[in-house]
């Protein structure tokens, strides 16, 4: 699982730069490079500030616990607090509108975290808020490859779709549109061939989950095949690996489908 580092500090503002430095150093140890390490520092600063302001609603109300898991080119950060349960959906996304009155500075920190990190995921476990953030070395990710999302019928009634490259906020909408075209035509048995996906960010995960739900609601299923190790790590990190049926190869997925249909 890589090297793990932990830091627990009181939830007060003067702890924040110390936690940010701790995480920045971990990111550098993971070989993430200066820019990515800066993004980690800053995202953690924003996260801890939010914890003090919104979860604890003040200083010295409880600790902030941080763990960093360091792998080559890959840093996973968990931040835990005992404060008020945090629901990110309560925070409006700031608009990039030029209308001053529409700017809601409250969501800025969260907005920056999402811009700077590859994965930002909130959960509530054992009465604690748990924030998971992942940052991946940029050079291992090909810049802005469009997921072409070719699909075809591999068996009568079974469709395979093959996104390529990086599935993130920029590219996921195209992929989502392709999945929706399939689903809207009543094609509810879908294999997503993940073998050509180099990286998946929150937006890509959301797209898959929502398509999986739609297929399931219609009595079908959406399964995954051929995930690379890096991509499957992201699924594990955010706890999504149990949601999907996941096959080593597309053939395995087809065999499983034929089994269900028989």
């Amino acid at each position: 699982m890589g090297e793990k580092r932990q830091l627990i500090l009181p939830g007060r503002y003067e702890s924040v730069p110390l936690i940010a430095d701790f995480v920045g150093e971990a990111a550098e140890s993971a070989g993430l490079g200066e820019d990515a390490a800066f993004h980690c520092r800053m995202a953690v600063d924003e996260a801890c500030t939010n914890i003090i302001e919104h979860a604890y609603e003040g200083e010295d109300k409880g600790p902030i616990e941080v763990t960093c898991t360091i792998e080559t080119g890959h840093c996973t950060i968990h931040i835990m607090d005992h404060g008020k349960r945090f629901d990110p959906q309560m925070i409006p996304e700031p608009t990039s509108s030029q209308n001053l009155d529409e700017i809601q500075p409250g969501g800025l920190g969260l907005h920056l975290m999402r811009k700077m990190m590859d994965v930002v995921q909130f959960s509530f476990e054992n009465n604690r808020n748990k924030l998971t953030m992942v940052k991946v070395q940029q050079s291992v990710i090909p810049q802005r490859e469009d997921p072409i999302s070719e699909y075809h019928e591999v068996q009568p009634g079974l469709w395979q779709i093959t996104p390529e490259g990086r599935l993130d906020a920029a590219t996921a909408p195209d992929f989502e549109a392709a999945l929706n075209r399939l689903l809207d035509k009543g094609n509810i048995w879908i294999v997503v061939d993940m073998s050509q996906v180099s990286y998946i960010a929150s937006r890509g995960l959301k797209t898959l989950v929502s398509a999986w739900r739609k297929a399931g609601d219609a009595g079908g299923n959406l399964v995954l095949s051929g995930m690379t190790k890096r991509v499957s790590q992201v699924f594990e990190t955010v706890g999504f690996s149990h949601i999907f049926d996941n096959y080593l190869t597309g053939e395995d997925a087809i065999v499983a489908y034929l089994g269900t249909k028989r």
């Binding site: 800053m42 600063d45 924003e46 500030t49 001053l100 009155d101 700017i103 500075p105 800025l108 920190g109 907005h111 920056l112």
Partner: peptide, 19 residues
């Protein structure tokens, strides 16, 4: 050398006032 959203917030709210 460093500005987080806490700083941005102050700049935005001051901008709102002077505008």
């Amino acid at each position: 050398e460093y500005m987080s959203s806490a700083g941005l917030r102050e700049l935005v709210s001051a901008l709102k006032r002077v505008k």
